[in-house]
């Protein structure tokens, strides 16, 4: 046997020792488990970053978001509109230097499609305190179905550096007690029928 700075002479392709073989086997099995967990979660788990992804011109996204605000606006807070869209609807959240808009009022147990995009540079969507994080890229619409599972006031922190005012960029989502899941589902089908 020799150290790793010695040139091995002759054929070094030799069978491994028992313990080495055992460890390589265990490690390989563990790697396969690690791999299998991800497809498994796509079928059985409730949290996946798949979403619906498409390119979008920032101007078009801003226009959609504007219509969304006009449709469901219920108030204003420090100049940022507050919207209360019905269960099942599409939400448009705009990230720009250095604000999130609008403020979202949601119902617990209801399902929405949350569209994320940025108008200028990359931003990071980080929902506090439950710690859900997504990358927000200009020119891309990231549409994720979300179902809030608890009431409360949530903060949306920007966690991608976006310039000198990055640390000032905080938005808000408020989740209130909703109707029963059944009526929320009915509402969804109603919206879809319209």
């Amino acid at each position: 046997m020799h150290s790793a700075i010695v040139s091995p002479k002759g054929v070094w392709w030799k069978p491994a020792g028992k313990q080495e073989k055992l460890w390589v086997t265990i490690a390989f099995v563990w790697c396969m488990i690690l791999f299998a967990m991800m497809p498994f979660w796509h079928f059985k788990g409730g949290q996946n970053p798949s979403g619906m992804r498409s390119r979008v011109d920032p101007k078009d996204f801003a226009a959609r978001a504007q219509r969304f605000v006009e449709d469901y606006k219920v108030g204003d807070e420090n100049g940022i509109p507050v919207v209360a869209p019905p269960a099942g609807s599409d939400l448009y959240l705009v990230a720009r230097m250095w604000a999130w808009s609008p403020i979202l009022k949601l119902k617990k147990g209801a399902t929405y499609t949350l569209h994320l995009s940025a108008l200028d540079v990359n931003h990071g969507f980080s929902l506090y305190p439950i710690n859900i994080n997504f990358q927000v890229v200009p020119g891309y619409d990231y549409a994720l179905t979300v179902t809030p599972n608890d009431v409360g006031e949530y903060k949306i922190i920007c966690n991608e550096f976006c310039g000198i005012g990055h640390h000032l960029m905080v938005g808000k989502a408020i989740v209130e007690e909703g109707e029963s899941t059944a009526s929320a589902a009915a509402e969804v089908s109603e919206v879809n029928n319209e």
Binding site: N78, I80, A99, G124, S126, Y128, P129, I130, N131, K155, I157, C158, N159, E160, F161, H166, H167, L168, M169, V170, G171, K172
Partner: peptide
């Protein structure tokens, strides 16, 4: 706990909320 990386001030002094 959700603390962001690359962030100057997580007390968010001066932020909207």
């Amino acid at each position: 706990f959700g603390v962001p990386r690359r962030h100057w001030d997580i007390t968010f002094a001066g932020a909207a909320t």
